[in-house]
Amino acid sequence: MRAKVLASAAALAMLFCQPALALDAPTDPVILTITGAITETNSDGAAVFDLPMLQDLPGRTGTMETPWTEGETAFDGPLLRALLAEVGAHGKTLRVTALNDYSAEVPVSDATDYETILALAMNGKPMSVRDKGPLFMVYPFDLNPELYNEKYFSRSVWQIKAIEVIE
């Protein structure tokens, strides 16, 4: 377990060795704020993102069943680890907070070990707040069926508004 964590940290360190470009300031309304142990910021001690900024990050589309949707549903959005790299995050845990102030702790390894995304669109359409938008943490249940259990369900935060990187 410890080895794995160390390996994950090492992998992250490798990523962060590349000189990160300074974050641009958002032009559209901010939908995600990242704080905590990060090196790149574009606001007062925080990295803030609008929709285009997030859409520019490397991402994936996964089609899967979830407990909260009817039938096979396609989710599309930036990879969590790409986002963390973008902000130069160096922590072990993420505290993910939703619009209703619900928050869940997600280990950073979930970002490095799995193709976890922050979904921006469901079935090709942007998600409104009423549809669990604007950001929905989606684990790759299609690639890793073993993740399909209550432990990961509770980490599947929707209506995400902020992420705090904790060392």
Partner: peptide, 18 residues
């Protein structure tokens, strides 16, 4: 408005989810 949207999303979850 956001609060209503959140409540709404809860409603849809309750009716859609298994």
């Amino acid at each position: 408005s956001l609060r209503y949207d959140i409540l709404y999303s809860r409603l849809s979850i309750l009716s859609n989810a298994k």
